[in-house]
């Protein structure tokens, strides 16, 4: 059981987050709730990418006085490349979220509602 937890708990968490976000996106009609769901999918995907860069005996990828990343010619740190990609993806996520919220505010000012079905009926 402890072996399962050590190896799989992060993957299970990221998968659960993606599932929850997808459920929110599929079942809600309020634009704000859809953006909340997309944000949760974003968190789950970032967690997945960082998880596959990790193994149970790894150390953090920063050289300090007590933290050696290379032992006997073998790298023992976590993979730094996916971490750097996720670092930038988080900032992009904030920018796109802000843009989506601004468009949602404009939609509310034009139609007076945030329900996608009512907006569709009003457009017809």
């Amino acid at each position: 059981m402890i072996d399962f937890l050590q190896n799989w708990i992060y993957l299970t968490g990221s998968m659960a987050l993606v599932g929850i976000g997808l459920y929110i996106v599929l079942t809600n009609t309020n634009i704000f709730r859809i953006i909340v769901g997309l944000n949760i999918i974003d968190s789950g995907t970032n967690l997945f990418i960082v998880t596959i860069a990790w193994h149970p005996k790894s150390v953090m990828p920063i050289y300090t006085a007590t933290n050696n990343l290379v032992v006997n010619g073998h790298v023992i740190s976590a993979d730094p490349l996916p971490q750097s990609l996720v670092l930038t993806a988080i900032v992009i996520g904030l920018g796109t979220t802000a843009l989506a919220l601004a468009i949602a505010v404009k939609i509310y000012q034009k139609y007076g509602t945030l329900d996608v079905r009512k907006i569709k009926e009003e457009d017809r």
Partner: peptide
């Protein structure tokens, strides 16, 4: 979780932004 996954850079970014 990012901190436990040995990614302190990502952890501080997510805490400040997310």
């Amino acid at each position: 979780l990012f901190f436990f996954l040995q990614a302190p850079d990502v952890a501080i970014t997510e805490a400040a932004i997310g």
